[in-house]
Every structure is written in C-alpha cells, then in structure tokens.
C-alpha cells in the first residue's frame, strides 16, 4: 500500500527553488495500478522518487506499507527499498556483466543478511518464466532485445517480493505493440503479487488499463475520473 499525504518537493535552483511536486495526495491500494500522466517536466518522476524512497519530500508523508519513508534514516530507507519497493527504470539499467538470471539473483546480495540468499536462484528462474523469458536465463543484456531487457527489469523489481512497484515510463524505448505487452505484463504482475503499483506513462492508450488515473500539471496532481 502506498499513500502519499500532502507531499511537496522543491529543488533548489540557484537563489530560487523549483516546486516539482505541489501538495500531492494519493493512495494506491494493494493489487491495483495507478497511472500518472502529464506533460514533460510536470513532476511525475519527482513524485515517483518520493514514493520510491529515493528522495525525502520537503513536506508531507510518504507511507510505504505503513511506514513513513520520509522519517527514516538513510540506512533504513536503503533497507526499505531493498525489502519493500520494486523499481522498474525507464531504461532497463541492467548490469552489463550479469546474465538475466544473475540480474535477479543480485537482488539478494545487496548487503542484507546472508539468509536472504536462500532460494534466490529458484525464485529468479520462476520470475523470468513469468515474464516470458524462459530460455533466455543465461543471456547478458547485450544479447537481449529492448523488450526482453525491459522484462528482466520488471522481473528484477519483483525479486524481493515488494509491496510497492514503482514504474517510470517503461515503454518509451519500445514500439507500440511491445509497449502494450509490457504494460499488460505489469498489470498481470500487480494482480499476481498484489503490489501497489504506481505507473508513469506518456502513452494515452495505456490509461484505460489502469485502475485509476492521475494527471499531473506543474506539480499539481488531479484525479481523472474513469471514462468507463
């Protein structure tokens, strides 16, 4: 469950400050996808960064699975990200030297307790199978297509059984058909693993598939009522 309460985020910009997120309030229940859309520079990625525990809001609360990420120490947020938050990056951001399977396995070797490692390989293989990559486990990023890389990216985000899935424009590097397949995969994974998924997308055709849609303009978030 993600719940952002009156989140404001400003960046220093010389002598002035830029308000990237302006008093945003948002709740994403478990097992559902909330899509965020809006023009470039409107603050969508900034909102995701707050929800992902990557930056502390200037004010407001960012509740992740009942814990306020804004109130945690740096070590605690690192642990929160490792254990509770899955992030799907815009560009797949895979480590070049690791095979698809290892991209997932490494999620259990990020400095947490050793017991995390148990069963990592098995779960990694299952997840790769779930995202349709059975048979490509031992390929490195350079040997995978853009769509396949994005699937690894999604599987990696799910590796540590996160409660929250943060997805920033996952289809921007893909064509229409492959992009739609990736969005469908995210919806399927959200349903299967019961994550609270926050999805930023530019593509209007994806919006009807989400459980809720929010529009962001100049840092201000507005709920878009379902057309259906």
């Amino acid at each position: 469950m993600i719940s952002l309460e009156n989140v404001t985020l400003t960046y220093p910009d010389g002598e002035r400050t830029v308000v990237a997120v302006d008093n945003a309030t948002l709740a994403v229940p478990a097992g559902s996808v909330t899509a965020i859309t809006g023009p470039s520079g409107s603050g969508k990625s900034s909102l995701l960064a707050v929800a992902a525990g990557l930056i502390k809001p200037t004010s407001g609360r960012a509740m992740i699975d009942g814990v306020d990420a804004a109130a945690l120490s740096r070590e605690e947020t690192t642990r929160l990200r490792r254990e509770k938050i899955g992030i799907v990056f815009q560009s797949p951001s895979l480590v070049p030297s690791l095979t698809a399977l290892e991209q997932l396995e490494v999620m259990r070797r990020l400095g947490g307790p050793r017991r995390e490692r148990a069963g990592a390989r098995g779960r990694a293989a299952e997840l790769l199978d779930a995202v349709g990559l059975a048979g490509s486990e031992h390929k490195r990023p350079a040997q995978l297509s853009g769509g396949q890389r994005q699937r690894v990216n999604i599987a990696r985000a799910l590796m540590n059984e996160p409660r929250v899935l943060i997805v920033d424009e996952p289809t921007s590097a893909l064509d229409q058909r492959r992009g739609a397949a990736i969005i469908e995969l995210i919806l399927a994974m959200t349903a299967e693993f019961g994550t609270s998924t926050l999805l930023v997308t530019h593509d209007q055709s994806h919006l009807p598939m989400a459980d809720a849609v929010e529009r962001m303009v100049d840092g201000v978030l507005t709920r878009v009522e379902e057309a259906a």
């Binding site: 070590e75 690192t78 990200r81 490792r82 938050i85 951001s93 490494v106 990020l110 400095g111 947490g112």
Partner: peptide, 17 residues
C-alpha cells in the same frame, strides 16, 4: 557509476558496493 546508482536505488548498501 550508472550501475552503482541502479544497485543503490534497488537497495544496495554502500558498504556492500
């Protein structure tokens, strides 16, 4: 540095890196 930023975002401790 790019890989390192990704691993950190995914929850890697600086010590482990």
């Amino acid at each position: 540095l790019g890989d390192i930023a990704v691993l950190k975002a995914l929850g890697s401790t600086t010590g482990a890196l």
